[in-house]
């Protein structure tokens, strides 16, 4: 009970928001808009899963938005050349992993602080993309739409894929040794070294994995629109970090679960439709996101200060 206190309190907040919506804006509960909302958030969920791993490992990655855009545009360009869809997906994941490996090399290999490294790669990839595309969208062939399925089944497939990935990863983080290594390194890298792990390798691989998931998310994004915006993914890093922090993953590493991240993301995803339904202007979304991040870290900060005493 106390172990999952954090996750449960977020779930409680989610239920409150849902209840408020049920009372004041019952229009929110319509199957089709809800499915669309879930489909839009599916890529974010995939990225948030990766971000959870990175933060559990006591690092941070703010370059995911740019990685996402690079992967999306690359996938789009490949698809435009009639590459088979499966190959496009693999390429997006591979490119993501490569970008993650660059971050990982600088952070784990050269032991540079992840915040500055990923700040630099964020801008570098974003500007390189702008330079290459000059703002031009990539038009996608029709067969990529919804992976060649009908819209509604395509939507179901994307949402199911994201949730299945979360479930698999959630189980793996608990039941596969490698997942426990990430927790161990995030808790205390020196103790991990003494216990025979290789903390730098774990950190490196976590960033590679983050990149690969970003590539996957990009592919899921490409599949649901007729064009690729080279500006896509702007601000994605903040959404992902917000979901992770709100979901109870400690920014100081080593603590938190993917289930919490899932609930955190649901809560955040409900905020902006809730705002529209409750007649608050959508322009407040970013501000509210920032405020929620701050609230979550303040709450955790107050809580750890109390327990430390």
């Amino acid at each position: 009970m106390t172990r999952h206190f954090r996750e449960l309190s977020v779930a409680g907040a989610l239920i409150l928001v849902l209840a408020a919506l049920a009372i004041f804006a019952p229009g929110f509960y319509q199957p089709q808009p809800l499915l669309s909302l879930a489909t839009r958030e599916a890529p974010t969920l995939v990225v948030a899963c990766g971000m959870a791993l990175v933060i559990i490992c006591r690092q941070i990655d703010i370059s995911v938005g740019s990685q996402f855009a690079v992967c999306s545009v690359s996938a789009g360009l490949l698809a435009a050349q009639n590459t088979p869809t499966a190959l496009v997906g693999l390429a997006a994941i591979g490119i993501g992993a490569l970008l993650g490996a660059i971050n990982g090399t600088l952070i784990a290999g050269l032991r540079l602080p992840s915040i500055v490294v990923t700040l630099a790669t964020m801008v570098t990839w974003r500007e390189a993309l702008r330079l290459q595309r000059q703002g031009a969208f990539v038009n996608l062939p029709d067969r990529l739409q919804w992976l060649g399925l009908s819209q509604s089944s395509g939507q179901w497939v994307l949402v199911a894929a994201a949730v299945a990935l979360l479930a698999a990863l959630g189980l793996a983080m608990r039941h596969v040794a490698a997942g426990r290594f990430v927790y161990a390194v995030g808790t205390d890298a020196e103790a991990a070294r003494l216990a025979g792990m290789r903390p730098q390798l774990v950190t490196f691989l976590t960033f590679v994995f983050m990149g690969a998931l970003t590539g996957l998310a990009a592919m899921m994004n490409v599949a649901q629109s007729p064009q690729v915006d080279p500006k896509s993914g702007t601000g994605l890093e903040l959404k992902a970090i917000a979901a992770v922090v709100v979901g109870g993953v400690a920014i100081s590493g080593g603590r938190g679960t993917l289930w919490g991240v899932f609930v955190g993301l649901l809560l955040l995803a409900c905020v902006s439709p809730a705002l529209t339904h409750l007649h608050v202007e959508a322009y407040w979304e970013k501000a509210i996101q920032g405020a929620i991040i701050l609230l979550a870290v303040v709450a955790d900060g107050v809580r750890t200060r109390k327990t430390d005493r």
Partner: peptide, 19 residues
């Protein structure tokens, strides 16, 4: 030199489990 955020069982496990 234990992992403070992990449980007792896991601390012992991480030290002892090869593979």
């Amino acid at each position: 030199a234990l992992f403070p955020d992990l449980t007792v069982a896991e601390n012992i496990g991480l030290r002892l489990e090869p593979g």
